[in-house]
Design a binder for these strands. Sequence first.
DNA 1: TAGTGGTCTAGACCACAAA
DNA 2: TTGTGGTCTAGACCACTAA
Lengths: 242, 242
Amino acid sequence: MEINRTSRLPLYQQIYEILRGQLIRGKWAPGESFPTEFELIREFQVSRVTIRQVMDRLASDGFIYRQRGRGTFVAEPTLEEGLTRIISFTEDMRRRGLAAGTKVLVSTILPATDDVAIALRIKPGEEVVYLKRLRSANNEPMCIEESHLNHRLCPGILDHDFSIQPLREILESKFRIRISRALQKIHAVVSDEEMNQMLKTPNPSALLFIERTSFNDYDTPVEFLRLFFRGDRYSLYNELKD
Amino acid sequence: MEINRTSRLPLYQQIYEILRGQLIRGKWAPGESFPTEFELIREFQVSRVTIRQVMDRLASDGFIYRQRGRGTFVAEPTLEEGLTRIISFTEDMRRRGLAAGTKVLVSTILPATDDVAIALRIKPGEEVVYLKRLRSANNEPMCIEESHLNHRLCPGILDHDFSIQPLREILESKFRIRISRALQKIHAVVSDEEMNQMLKTPNPSALLFIERTSFNDYDTPVEFLRLFFRGDRYSLYNELKD
DNA sequence: TAGTGGTCTAGACCACAAA
DNA sequence: TTGTGGTCTAGACCACTAA
């Protein structure tokens, strides 16, 4: 874990990426002491302001919290992160104390419909990878997920087994596509017959319906996602300020 | 707008509050130039680092955005703010281009039920102000709002007219209670007969259901709120990072 | 008392945009 | 060329916690 002083990437960003990666990979347990400012100053040989810039960001991201006079500590994972960071379904369920499962229902290539084309900023009729999965938690159905990928950006992706390897991992390792941000819309809808069958919900049921467009580093839409969560089992949590 | 150098409140926080207040009150129009760093340095007579600390926060709050070489500008109001800041129903509707209306359905004092008591951290049976309102947008029903206030914190609040003056304003001016943060849970539920009548929705309909507990500066729960939004008319928006 | 995080300063050099 | 925001430095003093 070295920083590059000749890189055009600012020092604080390099250090941020390093520490953030270590936090996500679980280098420290929640509640454990995080290195002090002066330890990080020694380790990376930068000024205190630069280290504090990094720690301010890690704190506002919710990864660490600081206590004057005591030190800095690693924060517990929160459910709120599902509304601020892009985390996988598996990770989301783990935080809720549930074991995630996946069943691929459909995986094929289709011409883009008008709404999908608009979301992906492509022409209607262009090739879209359509992936429909049933997501479960503790072996009970939890969510229907319909993914639409711009096939031009990930040709041949259908050869992979989506029930084993996470989609984002495939995009990153095989196609060098990193999802850096996403915009989403959250609604409530009534389930239809087909959904009730798949989700084992009574008729009628309410579903938490999320439409999400994910973008790569160059702000090109990569994926358009529709998520239908069981309203009786899944809620979102967050904090409002001021 | 002066800062107090002998106050225990840090300079950057004082300046932040001043500028934030001016931004919220609309001192500058969206898109308009915000004062440059050096103008603010001159105005408040503090160092550049301090001003940047303020502007970093205003930027991450979404109030301003900066462009290297060009300057700093006032951001457009976004719908996302409804998921990060505590904004009033009226303000939320305004951002959606709708005119808000309010009809008070019930306003009374009740003993706290178990769930409300837990949320407000009081004993079951203690006095709670119960306020039920029908919120409308462009004269169409949009939301049923059930508010539960800890009556001990705002005795006599029922004398006010909630259809005219915003609840938060009454709390602030009459009882010196400032809501500084809130925790909420977002679900989807199916409407019942009574709700369908009030909201003029068909049976069955899906509602976006939000439960929110609001806290004052001392982290005491002040209000427990249940919001039932029409699923066909109301959605939440937000951005996910990385 | 020693160590931690919180605040603040003056000053430097850089990249970028506009005139 | 000028002015803007972006990054980085060394150093200072303070408030709080724990030993």
